Simulated scan of single mutants.
Amino acid sequence: MTEIRRLDFIGVPSQDADRSRAFYRDVLGLRPDAKAAYESWAGDTCFGAWEPEKMGMAFVPQKGNPLPLGADDVAASRAALEAKGVTFFGETLDTGVCHMAFFADPDGNELMLHHRYAPRG
């Protein structure tokens, strides 16, 4: 049996990898990878833009389970992204444990800003 040790990266399906790279780096502020043109980093998590259609697969945006992007201040991060033209779905949600604000990248992949403010456990 194969041992799965970790999540190596998150694949971000795109119809235009250059546009996707620009969004994740220039709009969201993810760190570019010095060795890989279409990989960007948020902390220890790599986001890799790829074009499924170039691999003979259908492009399908990731919907229904937004990737949670950690932010220290969801309201401030949302305002900064809105100033860059990002459109959010509805108001910021306060669950009593965390704040969440939902949006999508230019390919329709759903994302969220997230901050847990209540102690864990």
Score class of each variant (00 low, 15 high):
Ser77Gly: 02
Glu39Ile: 09
Pro106Phe: 01
Thr87Asp: 05
Phe59Leu: 08
His99Glu: 07
Asp18Ser: 04
Tyr24Asp: 05
Lys35Glu: 14
Ala49Leu: 07
Asn65Asp: 14
Ile4Lys: 03
His114Ser: 14
Ile10Thr: 09
Phe23Gly: 00
Met1Gln: 10
Gly108Ala: 03
Arg78Thr: 04
Pro13Cys: 03
Met55Cys: 09
Pro68Phe: 13
Phe47Thr: 00
Met55Arg: 10
Ala76Glu: 13
Asp26Val: 07
Leu93Val: 15
Ala22Gly: 07
Gln62Ala: 13
Asp107Lys: 01
Trp50Gln: 02
Gly96Lys: 10
Phe88Pro: 11
Ala104Asn: 04
Lys35Asn: 11
Ala83Thr: 09
Asp8Thr: 10
Leu7Ala: 14
Val86Arg: 02
Asp107Tyr: 01
Ala83Ser: 13
Arg25Asn: 10
Arg116His: 13
Ala75Pro: 04
Thr45Cys: 14
Asp16Phe: 00
Lys84Arg: 15
Ala118Glu: 15
Arg25Ala: 11
Arg78Met: 14
Leu81Val: 04
Arg6Asn: 13
Asn109Phe: 00
Ala76Thr: 12
Leu93Tyr: 14
Arg5Gln: 13
Trp50His: 09
Asp105Pro: 02
Glu51Asn: 01
Lys54Val: 01
Lys35Asp: 12
Trp50Pro: 04
Trp41Arg: 08
Leu113Ser: 03
Ala75Asp: 15
Lys63Trp: 04
Phe23Leu: 03
Asp105Thr: 04
Asp73Gln: 11
Met112His: 09
Leu28Lys: 06
Met1Trp: 08
Asp72Pro: 02
Arg78Asn: 10
Gly121Leu: 13
Leu69Phe: 12
Leu7Tyr: 13
Leu113His: 03
Asp18Thr: 04
Lys84Asn: 12
Gly121Lys: 08
Ala37Val: 15
Val97Pro: 00
Asp107Trp: 00
Leu81Tyr: 05
Asp105Ala: 02
Asp105Arg: 01
Trp50Leu: 03
Phe102Lys: 06
Lys63Ser: 11
Thr2Asp: 11
Tyr38Thr: 05
Phe89Asn: 11
Phe103Gln: 11
Asn65His: 14
Glu51Trp: 01
Gly29Met: 08
Gly108Glu: 01
Ala79Glu: 15
Asp94Ile: 05
Asp73Tyr: 10
Glu110Trp: 01
Ile10Gln: 06
Ala101Val: 05
Asp105Glu: 06
Met55Gly: 04
Pro13Ala: 03
Ala101Leu: 07
Arg116Ser: 07
Asp94Leu: 05
Trp41Glu: 07
Leu113Gln: 07
Gly90Leu: 06
Asp44Ser: 15
Gly64Ala: 12
Gln15Thr: 10
